[in-house]
């Protein structure tokens, strides 16, 4: 079957490219560079093809052609806005007429910034502040004490204390205000300095956690690729 042969050829090619990529662990070499450039080119080309096929053609070209033939898939005003904004954005290619595309770029940047700020405030900052405020859950503490679950009540207190200390000390670490003391260089207040030192510990723990996550993700990707190579080897050996 041609389709099976094509599929198997693709699998073998993928296995070869995987082996070449993994060979970087033993040093850099030209073949690895070739594969690297191949991946970059394929990724860029695929993204461009998707942009043309899924965005430009169905949302701009096809509606314009249909409107040319008298069929309006979308409202004419919407179509005019799309065409005008696209044309202005296309003028960014020309150094002389690039200024005409600035309003479209400004629109994109402004809308993006507004959405990012609004979403961060509504979806991240306020809920996190609310969670930090309710660190010491008095209702749960009372419930645990009344039920005789002293361990849980202590857990509530310890968790709240750690969370409060981590929040305050981390914020103190990024407090850079200092006052001059005579001839001595400006120094932070002693309390803030001590909290900042504690905050640096929590920051190190956070960065270590992120690094561990990246390491585990890389290990997971390695396992999946090696599993794929084992499967290809088994396929080639007829098992």
């Amino acid at each position: 079957m041609p389709s099976d042969l094509l599929s198997q050829a693709g699998i073998v090619a993928a296995a070869l490219l995987t082996l070449i990529t993994l060979s970087y662990a033993f040093g850099d070499h030209p073949v690895f560079r070739i594969v690297l450039y191949l991946f970059i080119g394929i990724a860029a080309g695929y993204a461009g093809a998707i942009a043309i096929e899924d965005v430009i053609l169905p949302q701009l070209v096809f509606p314009v052609l249909d409107a040319w033939n008298g069929v309006f898939q979308i409202a004419p005003a919407d179509l005019i806005v799309r065409v005008v904004l696209s044309a202005l954005l296309l003028l960014k290619l020309s150094p002389r007429a690039a200024n005409l595309g600035n309003p479209v770029t400004a629109l994109l940047a402004g809308v993006g910034a507004a959405l990012a700020i609004g979403g961060a405030v509504q979806g991240t900052i306020l809920p996190q502040v609310g969670a930090a405020v309710t660190t010491f859950n008095a209702a749960q503490f009372d419930l645990a004490m009344q039920g005789g679950h002293y361990g849980e009540s202590i857990q509530v207190v310890v968790e709240g204390t750690i969370l409060l200390l981590a929040t305050v000390s981390t914020l103190a670490y990024f407090h850079f205000g200092a006052t001059a003391r005579g001839s001595q260089p400006p120094l932070r207040p002693i309390v803030v300095d001590g909290l900042a030192w504690v905050g640096s510990i929590f920051i190190v723990i956070t960065l270590a956690t992120l690094f561990a996550g990246v390491l585990l993700a890389a290990l997971s990707a390695l396992i999946e690729r090696l599993s794929f190579l084992v499967g290809v080897a088994n396929m080639l050996m007829g098992q």
Partner: peptide, 13 residues
């Protein structure tokens, strides 16, 4: 690698 940054949203209020 994304889990440490997403878990705080589980505790948000």
């Amino acid at each position: 690698q994304s889990a440490p940054l997403l878990k705080p949203y589980l505790l948000s209020d």
